[in-house]
Design a protein around this nucleic acid. Structure first.
Lengths: 213, 213
DNA sequence: CAAGAGGCGTACCGTACGTTACGGTTCGGC
DNA sequence: GCCGAACCGTAACGTACGGTACGCCTCTTG
């Protein structure tokens, strides 16, 4: 397991700095890891000296960019006052659909690509950041729902982590690795919805309580 | 979908050339994508000129290395003369276990990392090569087993591709992306075996025929 | 043994890019 | 209106690395 790498999203970012990071982000999506500091400066209409003053060096800029994007995708957790099979199903489908939308987005693909590329040559911890705000953030948001489902007698499982990982696998399947490797998987709004429903039904078939309350 | 990118594994590789590629492979595992031609030459005890003569340029060397590794992991397909639930289960577990072993190996992680890094900046087609010899090769080997299971009345599904992708998801779950991003997932022989059994049971629960023959 | 090919080691070139330095401009505060 | 700080644009520096050239060695072939 990696370090918590807790992100304090605020960190006092100026409007201007956020704009610069947005520019860097757009450039990252277009150019991948071979963006240059000069290009970022030009795109953001700022000087390189400012970039170095604000972010230290190239790696600093990259991590700041990744964290900045991460701070934007924070999705609201689902409310669970009245929990019946219908609302549980809806929640799971919503999570699945949101997740598929995220991992198939241009920015997510670009960010994961550079993070994967940087992992191993342990210069920075982009991988940890992406992991924390991707896979682990999803787990943190979904597990309460699973626990609530178990409390309500709708789900049966021993370990929430294992249940979550199964759901994760049923939803994502081969999509993320294929996208990262450059395969153009067709993911329209419709197929995402269908996949979300299918994954949810499969999950319920595996972990749904046999005798409902 | 990417181009077929059919690999002719032989391509007349000299013993010496294979040795050079092995050196490059080892270096790739150690250094990641920032290996230099000089380092490869030194490690392989050959001159850079030879590298360029044999492989054209850096990308050529990389693709040759990836293909060379790919040509080594070709796993034998399972025989299926007597197909009952026991042998089908064993086959599936074996596939799952082999697959987990592959994706958690150092070389696979390194290769996937550089392929992911290169995808998008469409210089070469490392992503296609890795995909063909990874995810798609697995599908080609596993689908006949699934079809045979259906023929024998042990499995029920409409689309073999969909069934395969579900199996893929149940086996891999979050393992590959976590490994690629640098998370140190604990994957001992024992846990791999357990995961393979669990995934297989879940798959059978979802796609096993209700009334066995 | 002579000739030539293939290959090793190394020096070298060109370039791209990270990083730094500097002059000019805007802008808020006195 | 003046001062200093922040910042823009750009030029300059240093280095790392992809790619090439060349001299020397070794081994095969006639």
């Amino acid at each position: 397991m990696l370090q918590p790498a807790e992100i304090d999203t605020s960190e006092a970012l100026t409007e201007r700095q956020q704009a610069v990071l947005d520019a860097a982000l757009r450039l990252l999506v277009e150019e991948g890891d071979n963006l240059t500091m000069t290009a970022v400066a030009r795109r953001a209409s700022c000087s390189k000296e400012t970039l170095y003053k604000w972010f230290g060096d190239r790696d600093g800029l990259l991590t700041a960019t990744v964290q900045w994007q991460a701070s934007k995708v924070r999705v609201a957790a689902v409310d669970r006052d009245t929990l019946d099979l219908g609302s549980l199903t809806a929640s799971l489908e919503r999570f699945a659909s949101d997740w598929l939308k995220v991992i198939s987005s241009d920015t997510s693909i670009a960010l994961n690509r550079v993070a994967v590329g940087h992992a191993g040559s342990g210069k920075d911890d982009l991988g940890a950041v992406v992991l924390q705000n991707g896979r682990f953030a999803l787990a943190r948001r979904l597990k309460p729902v699973l626990e609530a489902g178990r409390q309500a007698g709708l789900l049966e499982f021993d370990d929430a982590e294992t249940a979550f990982r199964t759901f994760f696998g049923l939803v994502g399947r081969d999509v993320q690795i294929r996208l990262l490797l450059g395969d153009r998987v067709e993911l329209t709004e419709a197929t995402i919805g269908g996949d979300a429903r299918r994954a949810t039904q499969q999950f319920l078939a595996l972990f749904g309580a046999k005798n409902r309350p």
